[in-house]
Amino acid sequence: MNTPDPALRQLAGLDKVIHEPGRLAVVAYLNAVAEADFLFLQDQTGLTRGNLSSHMSKLEEAGYVAVEKMFVGKTPRTAYRLTDTGRTAFASYRQQLLQALGEGV
């Protein structure tokens, strides 16, 4: 029996929650800032409202994103920030991807 290529095996082990392009963009952004709201993330990622909303729910379910709902005056605001689990998962995802693809890509 052939042994699977270690690099390909590493790719197969990538975190599926983060690996989706829309969620990857959101997580990469949230990793770079302290916190941000829906409008900011929508502007920066170019995702539609529905898409972004669905991605945020998945990230929240995975425990990668913490959600804080508040009112600023009469306006509701939902602020998102990456949890420690989310930051660790993103760092590990990044490391795995870099190792698997190498410098030649």
Binding site: A36, L39, D43
Partner: peptide
């Protein structure tokens, strides 16, 4: 910012 910026462009808090 809360009155003019965030309702238009969204809110972001930068990391120190």
């Amino acid at each position: 910012k809360e009155r003019f910026t965030y309702p238009r462009a969204g809110y972001v808090k930068l990391q120190p």
